[in-house]
Every structure is written in C-alpha cells, then in structure tokens.
C-alpha cells in the first residue's frame, strides 16, 4: 500500500472532476471567468478527462488492476462529491485544494 500514490490518485481525481466542472458554463462563470479567457474553458473538459485517466493510472500503483478499477470509481465519485460540497460552502478552496492535495502527496512521497 503506498500512501503517496493514493494521495496522488485522489488529487488527480479531484483535479479531473474540477476540469469537467469548469467545462460547464454555469461553473465556469462561478469560478474561472474573471481570470481567464473563454478559450481556456474549452480546454477544461478534455484536460479533466485526461486527469481522471491519470488518476486511474496512479491508483494502479496502489492496487492491482481489477481492484484499482473499483477504487478508481470510488475515488472519482468521492472527489466529485467533495467538489460539490466545496462549491457552495467554500468556493475559495475549490481551486486551491488540488494544489494542497498535490503538495501533500509530494510530502508523503518524501517522508
């Protein structure tokens, strides 16, 4: 069981769901529109999908194939749910969280 891979996978799952979320007009207006040009929005969805695939790849370092697939579904579901709750209650954390998650994963990897 490797904690860094698990954290990385979770962070990627969250970032992937965030990508899918930003690809939607409603949430893009809520989060991204002030800072970025609309061209970025079109990138969000494919980028999010790619990150989700990478989350599955990271999970395969924690579990063997079949189990990683099961866990992948669970991870992206729960990451999506976390995003769903952050959006109304703590919108400022929405973009910062994957960074924090990545950082945490890095720290885990170091120690």
């Amino acid at each position: 069981m490797s904690a860094p891979a698990l954290m990385t996978s979770l962070a990627l799952a969250y970032a992937g769901m965030l990508g899918l979320c930003l690809g939607m007009d409603r949430h893009w207006k809520q989060l991204g529109s002030a800072r970025l040009s609309p061209r970025w929005q079109r990138l969000c969805r494919p980028l999010g999908a790619l990150l989700l695939v990478l989350a599955g790849y990271a999970a395969s370092f924690v579990w063997p194939g079949g189990m990683a697939l099961v866990a992948w579904f669970g991870l992206i579901s729960l990451a999506g749910l976390a995003l769903l709750l952050l959006l109304p209650y703590a919108p400022r954390l929405v973009l910062g969280l994957p960074l924090a998650g990545g950082l945490l994963a890095g720290l885990f990897a170091l120690f």
Binding site: M24, R26, G80, L84, P88
Partner: peptide, 26 residues
C-alpha cells in the same frame, strides 16, 4: 447539467439537489 449543482438553504430545492447529487455522483 446538474452534475455538480448543490444549492444549500433553499428548502425543497436543496433536498432535491442533495438527493440527486449523492445519487448521480455515486
């Protein structure tokens, strides 16, 4: 469209959002 939508403190709307989101995401 409502994949990531949760509007708290809106009465029935919130219950429906919560029910939908917890059902759809999982």
């Amino acid at each position: 469209k409502d994949f990531f939508t949760f509007r708290p403190a809106k009465g029935q709307r919130s219950w429906l959002d919560g029910h939908n989101a917890s059902a759809v995401l999982l």
